[in-house]
Design a protein around this nucleic acid. Structure first.
Length: 313
DNA sequence: AAATGCTGCAACCGCAATGCA
DNA sequence: TTGCATTGCGGTTGCAGCATT
C-alpha cells in the first residue's frame, strides 16, 4: 500500500485553500509570526498540516510577493541563472525579488522550456537540440559556453559549491559594495567579495560576460525591478548587472567589446543569435584576448583565471 | 451548446538536510 | 552517536479555466 501523506494520516483538509482559511493563516502569522510551522495549524485553528500552511504562506499569502507575469528581464535572468545552477529553483528565485521557487519552476516548465525548444535549444543543456542529444544534462552550465574552450577542473559538487559561494558573495549589502569596490578597499576597484571567489584572483565581469556569453549587459539588464544596486533593496541580488565594463580592473580591454556585448541580449539567444552573435563579439575583440587567461594590456596587467571562471559558469 | 483538449497554477508528495534531545 | 521531528526543496499531479472542435 502506498505511503500516505501527513495530511492523510491526521485526516486533515487538503486541496485548495478557502478564503476563510487564508484569513485565519494570515491573521495568525500577522499576530504571532509562524514560529514552528507544525504548531501553526493548531494555533490558527486550521485543519491543515504545518507543511501545507507553510507552502500556502510562502507561495501565496506572503505580503512581499510580486504577482503577475514575468518581465522580459526576469525571464532573461531565470534562463541565465538556470544555465548556471540547473533546477535549483529556490536559488534562482532568491535572485528574483517577490518571486517564489514554485512560481519560477512553473514558469520554466510551462513557458521557457517550450520557448527554448521552439528555438531549437535544449532547455536542459542550453545547447542546440541536435548537439544536446550527444551530451549529458549534467554539463548544462558548461554547455552554454561551448564555443569557448572550457576545461572542467572540478567535480560537479565543487562546481555547485563555487556557484553557491558566488551567489552568497553577491548578496553582500550595498554599502559593502561601495566600501570595497570602486577603488576603495583593495585598490583595484574590485569588490572584495569577488576576490573571495575561489580560483579567481581578480574578476573581470566583462570577461566573464564574454567568456560565459550569458550575462546580459549592464544596459540590457539594469532595468530589472529591484535588482539594481542603486535600488531600494539593492545589493541583495546581482550587482554584476550594474557593473559596467569599466568597473573592472581591465576596463579598457573590455571597452573593445563592450559595445558588442550590449548587443548580446537574451532575446538574441532566443533568436538563435547567441551563436550568431558570438563571432560578431569576437570580431569586436580586436584587442587583447581575455580567453588566454591574462589580460594583456600595458599598465595594470591583471591575472584573469578564465578556467577558474569556467568552473562556476 | 456540449464535448474534448490544452494550459497554467496551486498544491501535494517524498526525500534530504538540519536541529535537537 | 543515534533517532526523531521539523523544515526545505524539487518533481509531479490535479484541477479550473480557456480554446477548439
Amino acid at each position: 500500500m502506498a505511503k500516505q501523506s501527513c495530511c492523510h494520516k491526521k485526516r486533515l483538509r487538503r486541496g485548495l485553500w478557502s478564503p476563510e482559511e487564508d484569513d485565519k493563516l494570515m491573521n495568525h502569522i500577522a499576530k504571532y509570526g509562524h514560529g514552528c510551522w507544525s504548531s501553526v495549524p493548531k494555533l490558527a485553528g486550521l485543519e491543515r498540516c504545518g507543511k501545507s500552511c507553510r507552502l500556502r504562506w510562502i507561495n501565496y499569502l506572503r505580503p512581499d510577493l510580486k504577482r503577475g507575469t514575468f518581465s522580459q528581464e526576469e525571464e532573461d535572468l531565470i534562463i541565465q541563472l538556470h544555465s548556471m545552477l540547473g533546477n535549483k529553483w529556490s536559488q534562482i528565485a532568491a535572485q528574483l525579488p517577490g518571486r517564489t521557487d514554485n512560481e519560477v519552476k512553473n514558469f520554466w516548465n510551462s513557458y521557457i522550456k517550450k520557448k527554448l525548444r521552439e528555438r531549437g535549444i535544449d532547455p536542459a543543456t542550453h545547447k542546440p537540440l541536435a548537439e544536446a542529444t550527444t551530451t549529458t544534462p549534467s554539463t548544462a552550465c558548461r554547455a552554454v559556453f561551448s564555443d569557448a574552450e572550457l576545461i572542467p577542473a572540478t567535480t560537479p559538487l565543487q562546481e555547485q559549491d563555487q556557484v553557491e559561494q558566488m551567489l552568497e558573495g553577491l548578496k553582500m549589502p550595498l554599502q559593502d559594495w561601495s566600501l570595497h569596490g570602486n577603488g576603495n578597499g583593495n585598490g583595484n576597484g574590485i569588490p572584495e567579495c569577488y576576490l573571495q571567489v575561489p580560483t579567481l584572483q581578480a574578476f573581470d565581469m566583462g570577461a566573464l560576460q564574454q567568456h560565459c556569453g550569458v550575462f546580459p549587459s549592464a544596459s540590457s539588464s539594469s532595468t530589472v525591478t529591484g535588482l539594481s544596486p542603486a535600488g531600494a533593496d539593492a545589493g541583495a541580488n546581482l550587482p554584476w548587472l550594474e557593473l559596467g565594463p569599466t568597473d573592472t580592473v581591465s576596463g579598457h580591454v573590455v571597452d573593445h567589446y563592450a559595445g558588442a556585448l550590449d548587443e548580446l541580449r537574451w532575446s538574441d539567444y532566443f533568436d538563435g543569435g547567441f551563436q550568431a552573435a558570438a563571432p560578431t563579439c569576437q570580431g569586436a575583440l580586436q584587442g587583447p584576448c581575455v580567453y588566454d587567461g591574462v589580460k594583456v594590456d600595458d599598465d595594470d596587467a591583471v591575472q584573469f583565471d578564465v578556467h577558474g571562471l569556467s568552473n562556476w559558469c
